[in-house]
């Protein structure tokens, strides 16, 4: 008889993470909000068809009610339909920018962390340099150069927001490299590529996934700032920042419906992504800390 009693229940790493995630009500609410808003923006226009290209000066700035549940804006566009259309662009840009930033950052950080030494030193000084240039400034300057499309805005935001992920992934790679299981794999004769594929990538994945959600939240805010400052999509396209910027000029006329519905959606979706990111981070920690 020895200490060999089998553990009582099978709990895989991911299953444990999912369980701890599901216990976090805010996170579940966050996922719900994201799904609902995506449905609202992308499937909504199929059910609720509105004119979003031709202006309608006659019906401009109508308060909510009647044919227009959320009123109309200065061009006479239906606000509810406008929010759907703007949301499509905002969500798309947020997602694309986050993916671009995470892809660049992960690659960069992994390379720096794996090579180490002088190369790592130079690569990280470059990151330090870029990080000290205010993000919004450089993005605005870059935006003056391009006509704004979903793609160009995603590229600009992605191109300047990979620095955080790069630092994060590098730190993760460095700490993973010093872990015992990497040493154990080396001792049993595993090659470097094998260690990277079997140990480093699966273990660093959690950090990267968490990072994507925060990046989406940040990118949605950033693109709304660009839109608000006048560097958003051009007519007839729209995203939420531009929509809010248009609304401001009519705020003093009491046209509250141009601001609050779209502002609410914006805050809600950003909050949802932040909730999900926080909960994911916690649940990954739980899985690793549970000892």
């Amino acid at each position: 008889m020895t200490d060999t009693a089998p553990p009582q229940q099978v709990t895989s790493g991911w299953r444990l993470a999912v369980r701890s995630f599901a216990q976090n009500r805010l996170a579940v609410a966050g996922v719900g909000i994201i799904v609902l808003l995506i449905l609202f923006c992308f499937a909504g226009p199929l059910l609720y068809v509105t004119e979003q290209v031709a202006v309608d000066p006659v019906n401009s700035l109508l308060p909510p009610g009647g044919d227009y549940p959320l009123g109309t804006d200065a061009q006479g566009f239906d606000v509810l339909g406008r929010i759907m259309r703007g949301g499509q662009a905002s969500l798309q840009i947020g997602l694309f920018a986050a993916l671009i930033a995470t892809a660049i950052g992960t690659l960069y950080g992994t390379i720096a962390g794996l090579i180490g030494g002088v190369v790592d030193g130079i690569m990280m000084r470059l990151v330090d340099t870029l990080l000290s240039i205010p993000f919004l400034f450089i993005v605005l300057i870059a935006a003056t150069q391009f006509s704004s499309t979903v793609l160009s805005l995603s590229l600009i935001l992605g191109a300047f927001s990979w620095l955080g992920p790069a630092r994060l992934v590098r730190a993760e790679v460095l700490s993973l490299r010093s872990r015992g299981f990497v040493a154990a794999a080396t001792v049993m004769g595993a090659t470097k590529p094998r260690i990277i594929v079997r140990h480093l990538i699966p273990n660093a994945l959690g950090v990267v996934i968490v990072n994507i959600t925060f990046q989406v939240a940040d990118a949605i805010i950033a693109v709304s700032l660009l839109g608000f400052l006048g560097f958003g999509l051009n007519y007839p396209d729209v995203e939420w920042g531009t929509q809010l910027s248009d609304g401001v000029s009519h705020l003093f006329e009491g046209a509250w419906w141009l601001i609050y519905p779209v502002g609410g959606c914006l805050v809600l979706v950003v909050m949802a992504f932040n909730f999900v990111g926080d909960a994911l981070r916690d649940s990954i920690d739980v899985r690793l800390r549970r000892r």
Binding site: R179, F181, A184, M188, G189, H199, N203
Partner: peptide, 18 residues
């Protein structure tokens, strides 16, 4: 390396959690 293996102090650290 086949002939030369190692056991570590912190077994949780030495086994890949994933």
């Amino acid at each position: 390396r086949r002939n030369l293996q190692m056991m570590f102090q912190d077994s949780l650290d030495a086994l890949d959690p994933r």
